[in-house]
Design a protein around this nucleic acid. Structure first.
Lengths: 139, 139, 139, 139
DNA sequence: GTGGTCTAGACCACT
DNA sequence: GTGGTCTAGACCACA
């Protein structure tokens, strides 16, 4: 088999649209190292069949991943995981972090958890990602 | 003054829809004690005018707050902050926290910030909220 | 009329796909100052009707413009020209410039024009863009 | 050696399809005098092997070159560089230059580079090509 | 009314 | 075979 399998599950109950679930899922697999640089993604039609969704939905997810610079198309051959690079300017990254943080805080603030508990959960989730590759940052 | 003022700011750049910003904002003020039990909320039209948004949007936010049991309608008088009661089971709260965390992590994972930096930002944002009220919530 | 008109012409003979022509056209109008910051774009369905194309094609162009940070959506209201900001990292910008230059050179190199002539044409085209706003760079 | 070598590099990151890169590359070598009139091009399969691409892609590039009159097939012997002749009218050339310029400007307009910087890059790229051969083209 | 998402099915260029 | 583009028509959340 030339193209790697992808372990994505579409959850209809999810608040995220289908194409976003695909984007997130593949981004996660790349971040975790399950999808190595140079690996070929499953074909649009193939993944659409596997997930039992419309091919255009997969195509939209793939075009999003391409726009984000995570994968590169080779004409007539398919999409391949590309060398990681930072597309966004520092300013833009800061802005997005701020937005994400404020959104997250607004979601959890009214829950009966104290700050330490929330922080611990976030920390664990972040470390789980960083743990896979050879980034040796520990706390 | 019969109805208390609410200090809400609508941010157009926010990912949340406007009605959600209102719901979150009022919920926050109730949690912080700025809106005491029994206080009357501003009228739909009044708040819409104040925030310069469509009245339907405020109405939607209010109906959301009512459905969540945070406020109670008194026929012909308006909406009033109701007795606090824990509507979400512990299990439900944990689930929401987990969902929020994983969503947040997914959003910031591809940014070039290290774990510490992200944690610090979240911590600051949480403390800024917790600072004002008497935080009697333990986990 | 609340939303500004847009002077775009779809050319079927063009090598660019329709949605790209729209993106380029609007980007150009923003660059030239014809579309001021804060201006509302024509609605998806409205522009689709005007250009006699499918609404999804316009939607795709609009989502592209949004991804590039040129316009911002306000839920339920439409798309608005946003404050200019630099989305891309310096590294990414350099890369794109290199790619564009090499592509351009490859297209014109086999034409019987000398370097000076080509340079002059490019310069004029660039100045025409820069000339509109108050950037006072002249050669 | 019966057929001259061609020095072409296929760049996957290039916006041009592979067959176009071949066409451009060979056209460039002819223009530069590296491929003299009467020289035999490498065989379809040979070049495909050398570039590690599909033979059909090379065939398409060769048929394109033939259609443009740059090379001539001799039955059973292969393709040979043909006598130079100007296929494009002056009007057609001007039109192509204009198209290329406007496309290029559109691509770089949204990057945060000033006119001088862009011009310098184009100039360097053009000179790098013109440097080798005896440029006898005037406008 | 607005944009966003999804489906279904077609055609195209490229390999 | 591959991804990319376009159309047509539907449904949704939001204002």
């Amino acid at each position: 088999m030339t193209s790697s399998n992808v372990k994505i599950q579409i959850v209809t109950g999810d608040t995220r649209p289908i194409f976003k679930q695909i984007v997130d899922g593949i981004r996660m697999e790349i971040a975790c190292g399950e999808l190595q640089v140079g690996t070929k993604l499953p074909s649009v039609r193939g993944l659409a069949m596997q997930l039992m969704i419309n091919a255009n939905t997969v195509a939209k997810a793939y075009s999003e991943l391409t726009a984000q610079g995570l994968v590169e198309p080779r004409q007539g051959l398919g999409l391949f995981v590309s060398e990681p690079r930072q597309l966004l300017s520092e300013e833009e990254q800061k802005k997005r972090l701020r937005t994400a943080v404020s959104g997250f805080v607004n979601e959890v603030a009214y829950l009966a958890f104290n700050t330490d508990h929330i922080i611990r959960e976030v920390q664990e989730a972040l470390i789980k990602l960083d743990g896979a590759p050879d980034t040796s940052d520990r706390d």
